[in-house]
Write a protein that binds this DNA or RNA. Structure first.
Lengths: 212, 212
DNA sequence: TAGATTGTTAATCGATTAACAATC
DNA sequence: TAGATTGTTAATCGATTAACAATC
């Protein structure tokens, strides 16, 4: 991995898709693949694939192609999926529960180490393998454990106060399911936003504009 | 709204954000806003805002700015949020329930008219205002009701068979939470993908590459 | 009228695609 | 060696930013 120059956002967004398709190829026992064949599978141009991969180093071999296994590992490394960033879940409602139950955090570079909910009735309940903690135990937990990331599954109105708490506890990385604008308040925060309603609106737009 | 030329994807992706901020301004009672002021609020350049809006028509007034109320309505119209596209939910697990309970479909151009789940034990249970139906009632329901969109909240392995069924029932619009590649199978399908694990990987990458 | 701010054209920047020499 | 396919440079395309004339 060379990666001296800055990698563009567009490239980074494509990396998980590369990883996914390479994983499938590997499962099928495919050992090598050319940019052309991968192109047909994944839906990027062969040229773009070679361009993308060469941001990080020359993983291929002229006249041969790319080793599926090696390339998959390289991309894992680039994405940093071998990390175990410790994440806490804030809000154990429908969305929070869905994430906790269905995402394979380990494969994604994270470990879910705790979840918190403001509803006293939920305290002590099980969410997957975790016991739901009271919101008020947040400071104590963060004092005793390293916490790298907070997953915010709480309503927009509750985010600002919660964010201030988390930030003051040293947390700088957020996976945000609300529409609250974290980056505006803390410019040094690392934020990934999931705006589901925006996505559904985009689908609505597409449906409206089929013939164009 | 003129919209003779084709609107770029980049512009469309920004529209929901415009709508959101304009909604907030309207709530606060703000009547007009200049591209410069909106720029500081929303985080796009003033130039970009004017460029974006002029794809659809001259909504502003020189020397004055934009009417918040009018602009919000225009954007609603462009996105097509006054529609009531009839959507059905396939899969009433954690994610499906989260969507059904927390999204305001009416504001997003849709109406959730039914939900289906393969688990017989769930049949008849309430999900919000809807009663969960059996997967096997899908054909009958689609025969008696207009269905514009299917929201796929089922595991990847189950998607292909289900997709074929839905497609054969005439459904061409999909909100897809799995990693199954719908567009590859049906090139005339309108698809919006939500790849949560890809997003989390992107966050992982960002955390790894803070200093660059 | 003078000031403000749009609408729009031109300039810049970035990302994708095409081409091809390098090389396995 | 000949064929295949990469790595990389150059060309194209698209999106963003800057500039400014039009105009409210």
């Amino acid at each position: 991995m060379k990666q001296s120059k800055l990698i563009s956002k567009a490239v980074i967004k494509r990396l998980p898709r590369y990883r996914r398709y390479l994983g499938e190829l590997k499962k099928k026992g495919v050992e090598k693949i050319s940019s052309k064949d991968l192109s047909e599978l994944i839906g990027y141009t062969a040229s773009q694939i070679r361009q993308d991969l060469n941001n990080f180093g020359g993983f291929g071999q002229q006249g041969y192609g790319y080793s599926v296994k090696q390339l998959k590992e390289e991309i894992k490394g680039i994405l940093g999926l071998n990390n175990r960033y410790q994440a806490i879940l804030i809000g154990a409602g429908n969305f929070g529960s869905a994430l906790a139950n269905h995402l394979d955090f380990q494969k994604l570079g994270f470990e879910l180490v705790a979840c918190f909910d403001g509803d006293p009735a939920k305290k002590g309940q099980l969410l997957g393998e975790l016991t739901i903690r009271s919101e008020s135990d947040l400071e104590e937990f963060c004092g005793n454990n390293r916490v790298d990331t907070a997953i915010l599954c709480i309503p927009k109105d509750a985010v600002e106060a919660e964010l201030d708490r988390l930030y003051s506890l040293g947390i700088r990385s957020f996976w945000n399911f609300s529409h609250y604008d974290i980056s505006r308040r803390y410019s040094d925060a690392i934020v990934e936003n999931v705006h589901l309603s925006d996505m559904l609106m985009t689908l609505c737009y597409k449906m409206n504009n089929l013939n164009s």
